[in-house]
């Protein structure tokens, strides 16, 4: 285990929608280089928690730290610029741009501002090479000049990851990256994420338990907005409360 300070930490986070408490006093630490999975039944508040980390949802109480910096009130685009990359549960690419343009645009914020009015965006060889290397990493190098819109679901998911990686984030927030994927595609994506392990810290919200147990160093279980357990996959498998709340009483180990 790395003893270093966490890259992302959450303290006493609370979010209510009217009378419904969707995040209830959640504490969470993402250690540098680890893959930390967040699991829980539907409606447990996983997406809302992620939304508060990305800056789309404003928490009612509690604090979020990126390293030592308090980012609780920072808007989404500023967090992204600090090094918080994310992928969306529902594919969110730029359908009217080509694959390479998607990758270039996604890397643009990292390279500084985009108020460059004259030079051709595709003429910057260094950035083009970086973007191509990224596409190769997610397996889309052969499709660089295709329009993103009409591609297949699996390819959209790959591009989704490429966009999230393009800003060279320190932390990757992955909202159900395997959503809607077949067994084969989801195994490919699992291998891809495994290969990235260590170079970037990942917070993974995922329903696919095979992927979770293959990837995660630690798992946090969310039930009704409360984090009921955090631990290694083995500890989580053995945890009585988790089994009762989530896996079902009679679960004979997954």
């Amino acid at each position: 285990m790395q003893g270093a300070a966490p890259v992302l930490s959450v303290r006493g986070l609370v979010k209510r929608y009217g009378g419904l408490v969707v995040t209830q006093d959640v504490d969470l630490d993402l250690r540098r280089g680890e893959v930390h999975a967040i699991v829980g039944p539907n409606g447990a508040g996983k997406t809302t928690l992620l939304g508060q980390l990305t800056g789309d949802v404003r928490p009612d109480a509690g604090r979020i730290y990126f390293g030592t910096r308090d980012i609780t009130t920072l808007p989404a685009h500023r967090r992204a610029r600090l090094g918080l990359g994310r992928s969306f549960q529902i594919t969110s690419v730029f359908p009217d741009l080509t694959v390479i343009e998607n990758a270039l645009l996604a890397g643009q914020a990292h390279a500084g501002h985009s108020f460059r009015f004259w030079q051709h965006a595709l003429d910057d060889h260094e950035r083009l090479a970086t973007a191509m290397a990224l596409l190769a990493q997610v397996g889309l190098a052969d499709h660089a000049d295709r329009l993103a819109g009409p591609m297949s679901h699996g390819e959209h998911r790959q591009l989704e990851i490429a966009i999230a990686l393009a800003g060279q984030p320190q932390v990757l927030l992955l909202d159900e990256p395997m959503a809607g994927m077949g067994i084969e595609d989801s195994a490919t994506l699992t291998r891809m994420l495994l290969a990235m392990k260590g170079s970037v810290s990942m917070l993974l919200v995922e329903h696919d338990m095979n992927a979770v147990f293959a990837l995660a160093d630690r798992i946090s279980v969310l039930v009704y907005g409360r984090c009921i357990a955090t631990g290694t996959p083995d500890e989580i498998r053995a945890d009585a409360e988790v089994r009762r709340a989530y896996l079902g009483d009679d679960a004979s180990a997954p």
Partner: peptide
């Protein structure tokens, strides 16, 4: 065709995604 233009086309194509890649 500039970087600025690519940003604008990106905004037209998917504005919600723009913030998550760090652009305002």
């Amino acid at each position: 065709h500039s970087r600025f233009g690519l940003t604008l086309r990106g905004i037209r194509s998917n504005e919600t995604r723009i913030a998550s890649i760090g652009l305002h």
